[in-house]
Design a protein around this nucleic acid. Structure first.
Length: 606
DNA sequence: TTATCTGGCGCG
DNA sequence: AAAGCGCGCCAGATAA
């Protein structure tokens, strides 16, 4: 079946243009203008034919559709896909990679920063968000530029030896962009009352800004007493270091792990203080007031925000939600959270990347580290873990370094892959993930340091610096291959989960004889950035009654689902992991084990 | 005063 | 036991 693409662009006057293309990017008819107001209904209608929407930036356009109650099944995000193809060594010979930098390169950062979730449809779709600076706006020429870019991307992929890989990567990256927008829109269910109780229990009652809660103040009192310093501020590392030294403790820093080694009565209250002060400043009442809107946490997810292809986030530190506060993530009444975590994802990815069947065997149907122990490679699970991490991160010393030779003997292919990636980085070469995302080349300064060291009259210091930098970059490329390929697996996993959840939704709605139209129509929730029509959060939104992804954390997802569907959701997530593994690694026999928990609150999921 | 850097720590 | 990858965010310190 031939794919149909619909290209979406805009004119300077706020009007939107849509044009149907075939799967070579060739126009099948004239571009049709549509007003910003009518755009969501057009999309809803065209969705019946399952097109792939081709647009510049999902993060700018899709929130508008969600707000209007419209979801789309598939997209091609020109901005994200360009970034991949521009830097991949697989497409280095393509026109796209060889042409002069254009707005697709220079303007990316600008577009990414210009988003505003509260912006109106007109602002998002009608405004000039191109940063080409030539002031000619976006007449039909701008639209033609989108079509040309799309064709250029298709051509770059088609020219590669195994186009299926990059095709999958671009589809996964684009699906990720849809998911990112949907997760932000839906938000993570968050009970501020539960959060407040938790804070009050460990810090004392809420106080204004600049005031220490009472339990924290008490700890400060004990610290000052034990250090015999009535004024020391434990929030100031220099002050604290001086005070500790005066008390006879030979510290080089105030880091918790260094303090833990010391035997002194101040250590216990000090470590406790650090823990609680961190909670207050990072996820205290101020955080709650700032980031929780109508019972939902709405961080902005940035697909491709990390060089390796991992996601970044902006706002609220969503990827660092401490375990301490996860109890405040509570399913709505009548709903459940299905929390799934890929167990030992990166070693499994490494086993598959390197076709190391022995390592894959160690993880078959069991905890991979336990499997390594069972194979007699090392004595304890902790050893297996630290040795594996050392192999993937490039440890040379300590316990990890000592255990590496045993790992290398048992799993030569896996270890050879990480070594090869490290050597490539040390030479300044790029490395590439399973699906084709390449590491950036090192910067000018790096090359300069290398050539300086090998030039006539280079000093010992020059050589040492060059060697250090080469090894540093080698550790980066060593890890890039594994972390980046794991990120690709996670994207495929999530895309598959999303697809199956939509099928489940359609099935349930058909079975119930319900009106299959989702959402409440354009404009019904205008004025709210997140479409929260009821106190429980999702009322009136496109996710009001259906299971949907609400959180993603590198190798972990959360689906918020009506309770009666929780079992089926868990099955979908399990099967999606196996499917993602096949998409990346074909028939190579590697398990991607999950731990899946159906819970009322995130804190209960281990 | 504001802008940027640093130490420290949360997550994977 | 604290090396070895990728991030974001905070308070305090320092530069401008």
């Amino acid at each position: 079946m031939e794919s149909v693409y619909i290209l979406v662009g805009r004119r300077g006057n706020g009007e939107i243009l849509v044009e149907v293309l075939n799967d070579s990017g060739v126009t099948l008819g004239p571009a049709r203008p549509v007003s910003a107001h009518d755009f969501p209904s057009l999309v809803r209608h065209e969705e019946l034919g399952s097109p792939r929407w081709v647009w510049e930036d999902t993060a700018s356009i899709y929130p508008v559709l969600l707000e209007a109650g419209v979801r789309v099944e598939r997209a091609h995000d020109l901005r994200l896909c360009h970034a991949i193809l521009r830097h991949s060594v697989l497409t280095a010979a393509s026109e796209l990679a060889r042409s002069e930098p254009s707005r697709w390169d220079a303007a990316l950062a600008f577009v990414a920063e210009s988003r505003d979730p509260g912006a109106t449809l007109f602002e998002l779709l009608g405004d000039d968000i191109d940063a080409d600076g030539d002031g000619d706006g976006h007449g039909d020429a701008g639209f033609a530029d989108l079509a040309a870019e799309f064709r250029s991307q298709l051509a770059a992929v088609a020219e590669t030896e195994e186009p299926g890989r990059l095709r999958l990567l671009l589809a996964a990256e684009s699906a990720g962009a849809l998911i990112a927008a949907e997760m932000r829109f839906a938000g993570l269910p968050w009970r501020t009352d539960v959060h407040d109780e938790l804070l009050t229990r460990v810090l004392g009652p809420r106080v204004g800004p600049g005031v220490r809660p009472v339990l924290l103040e008490k700890l400060v009192g004990r610290i000052r007493l034990e250090l015999d310093d009535p004024l020391v501020n434990p929030d100031s590392p220099p002050e604290l270091t001086r005070a500790l030294r005066r008390a006879g403790l030979a510290v080089t820093s105030t880091r918790a792990w260094e303090l833990k080694e010391l035997d002194h009565p101040v250590i216990e209250p000090l470590l406790e203080y650090k823990k609680l002060a961190r909670l207050l400043s990072a996820n205290g009442w101020y955080w709650m007031d700032t980031w929780i809107v109508d019972g939902r946490f709405h961080p902005e997810y940035l697909p491709g925000g990390v060089v390796t292809g991992r996601w970044a986030t902006r706002g609220g530190g969503a990827l660092q939600l401490p375990k301490q506060v996860r109890g405040a993530v509570v399913a709505d009444s009548g709903w459940k959270l299905v929390v799934a975590d890929a167990a030992q994802l990166e070693p499994r990815i490494l086993a598959a990347l390197s076709s190391d069947t022995a390592m894959a065997d160690a993880g078959r149907g069991t905890d991979l580290y336990a499997g390594i122990v069972a194979s007699g490679v090392v004595e304890t699970r902790a050893h297996a873990k630290v040795a594996m991490l050392g192999a993937m991160y490039g440890a040379t010393t300590g316990e990890s370094g000592r255990l590496l030779p045993r790992l290398a003997r048992a799993y030569p292919r896996a270890l050879a892959l990480t070594e090869t990636a490290a050597r490539a980085g040390e030479r300044g070469d790029q490395v590439t993930t399973r699906l084709g995302r390449s590491s950036p080349p090192p910067g000018e300064a790096w090359y300069a340091a290398q050539s300086l060291a090998s030039s006539e009259g280079a000093g010992d210091a020059d050589e040492r610096r060059a060697r250090t930098q080469a090894r540093d970059w080698g550790r980066f490329t060593r890890n890039f291959v594994v972390q980046g390929s794991a990120a690709e697996w996670a994207l495929c996993w999530m895309a598959e989960i999303r697809r199956e959840l939509r099928k489940l939704t359609a099935e349930v709605e058909a079975g119930a004889g319900a009106d299959v139209g989702v959402g409440v129509g354009a404009g019904a929730v205008a004025g709210s950035a997140f479409a929260s029509g009821s106190p429980s959060g999702d009322g009136g939104s496109v996710f009001a009654d259906v299971p949907h992804l609400v959180f993603f954390l590198h190798d972990e997802v959360i689906v918020h689902t009506p309770e009666y569907l929780a079992t089926r959701v868990a099955t979908i997530i399990e099967e999606a992991a196996a499917t993602a593994g096949r998409h990346l690694f074909g028939s190579f026999p590697v398990d991607f084990l999950l731990t899946v928990a159906t819970v009322d609150n995130y804190g209960d999921a281990k």
